[in-house]
Amino acid sequence: MRKAGVIKVTDPPDDRRNELMGKIYFWIVLALVVVSGLLFAPEKAGLAIHPMDQFQVKSYFSDHVGMFSITNVTLWLGLAVLAVFALLVLGTSRRAIVPGRAQSVAELAYGFIYKMVEDVAGKDAIKFFPYIMTLFMFIVMANFLGLIPMSFTTTSHIAVTAILAALVFFTVTIVGFVKNGVGFLGLFWVSSAPLPLRPILAIIELISYFVRPVSHSIRLAGNVMAGHAVLKVFAGFAGALGLFSFLPIFAITAVYALEVLVAFIQAYVFTILTCVYLKDALHPSH
């Protein structure tokens, strides 16, 4: 009772002090931003915005990017492997019954994808779980690593996402024919539609089937690339606007938050679409 009274007495000045400190910090940061804008935004910088430079593949030990060259692609793919290893292997090394933070996240990821495969693709798709988990962990780690400033985002390249999508496409097609034989073609023959419509629908279904890997890959690369390019464009504005550079900096903060969301959502979308396609392969009937 008495303690509560004491807190009541001391709270408002604390609040006021915090508010004051917040204001002071705000103005200090703003002043720093303005000063840095004035100091580091000479007129010659102008509107030198190169939003696509960040996507360039650079060889570290030679001028030429050959097939086996060590490039920034190699570095950031390797870091993605390390991140997956750190989370799923080092994070679970204690095998605790009551998990710690890293183990909790690893178990969440496991449960998330396992349930997705089970619910979307069906129980008989569980044997593809390590494959789908590989895709998800790689994409999500690559996306998040790409959000580190000055990093290289491997999933922003169509070459990478096209291979991922092609892997899914060929896996699904092969599994479909192996599991169902010619019956897999029933996927294109919509038996619930009226008979005259079926050939037309079959053509549409066939086209949509072959468009799948294209949309599958471009969706991921496009989203990641666009977000990063937007960040760079705003960064260019921040360099050019001098005194008012705090505006694009706030915009960058907002877009960055959105990008964090997109990084996860695109990995999720890629994975769940993989599960949907796999379901088609395992159960081709409409």
């Binding site: 793919l77 496991y110 988990m133």
Partner: peptide, 25 residues
């Protein structure tokens, strides 16, 4: 740069797959 990216991506995917299927999962 495609061949470079595809080669290293293949290595990455194989390594992650092995890590997951042998140890982590």
């Amino acid at each position: 740069t495609f061949s470079n990216q595809i080669f290293w991506l293949a290595v990455t995917l194989v390594v992650i797959y092995l890590i997951l299927s042998r140890v982590a999962l």
